[in-house]
Amino acid sequence: MTPRREAARPRLDDAQRLAWLRLIRSENVGPISFRALINRYGGAEAALEALPDLAARGGSKRRIRIAEKAAAEAELARAERLGARFLFQGEADYPPILLATEAAPPVLAIMGDPAVLARPTLAVVGARNASLSGVKLTRQLVAEIGAAGFVIVSGLARGIDAAAHEAAISTGTAGVFAGGLDKPYPKENGPLMRRIVDGGGCLLSEMPFGWEPRAVDFPRRNRIVAALAHGLLVVEAALRSGSLISARLAGEMGRLVFAVPGSPLDPRAGGTNKLLKDGALIVTEGKDVIDALRPLDSRMEPGFAASQGAEGSFLGDGPSEGERGRILEALGTAPAALDDLIAHTGASPAALQLVLLELDLAGRLERHRGGYVSLVF
């Protein structure tokens, strides 16, 4: 299962890296709006200059907060002091499987060796209050799957996540933080995190150093866990759990979803049994996962991501006032598909994307699953 050799991708210089970090740390700039800004303005420096006007055109009542150069420099220095560094989207060491997803983080903080993520990967998630049998089974499955050459990705939580990481330290594992890399959660897993790095694995986060994880940050973390893997295995999960969010996200990304069946009398099996009813692949031994994932080793091609990290040129003029007015009139609180907005308004795709970018930066746009958008009033 040898990773495909890829053409060398362009590397950002120090000034570009600083500008990219400032841009993603600026107010209302997320992965999708970041990519739109880079593709439109040709580089982060130009995008930073454009932010105030874009947010104002989107209806912002105050000046948008732009990350200061000194703050970005301090974050770079803090990473270096902690033995971490940053991966920038499209550069050679950025995980190729993550690059192919729509909302890939433009910048990742990493501690350890990112080369582990160039190998075939499986995400393993499950209950924090895992049963003894669930923990034991997780270790058995991961040991078998890891020995077959797969790297295990998980979220460093208690229970199933921790058991999966522990069983994969010798074969390769990556842990994704919900907060900053200097804010491990839960703190009791600190020694495990150190063993992951020392064992040749890595720890990653899209959040700034110093960021304390909030409830809303865990689903964001889950999307990265799902995106980093060719398939996702759920060992134990209740009917309302973060593991089912991860499974849904994995399915939307086209990943294979696996689940271990459990007793109907155990609430921790409610979610996994529902996944199986909904079409997840049943797993009772590691071979079930290995046989399903082997044919996928050709892996997906990196798709877009700001011209693979290269900074390019300005992409055309903005929408006419007529186009802008029709787009704003068509948007409402009900989610609408982009294709429907284009058909209804007669606006060009480029005009629609720019208006959506302006609204996004003004904090007036909500993005929904499947590419739908709505206005926030």
Rank of each mutant, 00 (worst) to 15 (best):
A148D: 13
A164P: 14
G175H: 02
G149Q: 05
A148S: 15
A157Q: 01
V176R: 01
A163C: 12
S154N: 13
E144L: 08
K187Q: 12
G149H: 07
V151S: 04
P186R: 04
P184T: 08
K183R: 14
A147Q: 13
A164F: 06
A168Q: 10
K183C: 13
P186I: 08
A162Y: 00
T171W: 04
V176Q: 02
S154M: 11
I169S: 09
I160N: 04
G175W: 01
G146M: 12
A168V: 11
I145K: 02
G155A: 11
L156T: 10
A147K: 14
T171C: 12
G146I: 11
A162V: 09
G180L: 04
I152T: 15
G159V: 03
A164W: 05
G146S: 12
Y185H: 06
A143G: 14
D182V: 13
K183F: 08
S170K: 15
A147W: 03
A168L: 09
E144Y: 07
L181T: 04
G155T: 09
V176E: 02
S170M: 06
E144K: 14
A148I: 10
G146N: 10
T173N: 08
I160V: 15
R158V: 06
R158G: 09
F150C: 11
S170A: 15
H165Y: 04
L156I: 15
K183S: 00
K183I: 15
L156H: 02
F150I: 10
S154D: 11
G179T: 07
K187V: 13
A157N: 01
E188I: 14
A157V: 08
K183M: 15
G179M: 07
D182W: 14
T171K: 07
E166C: 06
E188D: 10
F150K: 08
A164L: 12
V176F: 04
G175N: 05
K183V: 15
V153E: 02
V153S: 00
H165P: 14
D182L: 12
G172E: 03
A164C: 13
A148N: 09
I145P: 01
G159Y: 00
G155D: 03
A174G: 10
T171P: 13
S154T: 15
I160D: 03
V176M: 04
V153G: 01
I152H: 03
G149N: 04
G179V: 09
G172A: 10
G159T: 04
Y185W: 05
A168I: 11
E166L: 06
G175C: 14
L156M: 15
V151D: 03
K183L: 11
V176K: 00
I169W: 08
S170L: 13
A174D: 07
A147R: 15
E144F: 11
G180R: 01
G172P: 08
I145Y: 03
K187I: 12
A163S: 13
P184H: 04
G172M: 08
I169N: 08
A174M: 11
A164I: 12
I160Y: 05
A163R: 05
Y185I: 08
V176D: 01
G180F: 02
I152C: 06
V151P: 02
F177S: 00
G180K: 01
A157S: 08
I169G: 07
A167V: 09
A162I: 05
V176S: 03
E166I: 00
E144G: 09
T171E: 05
A178W: 01
A157M: 01
G149L: 07
V176G: 00
G172K: 00
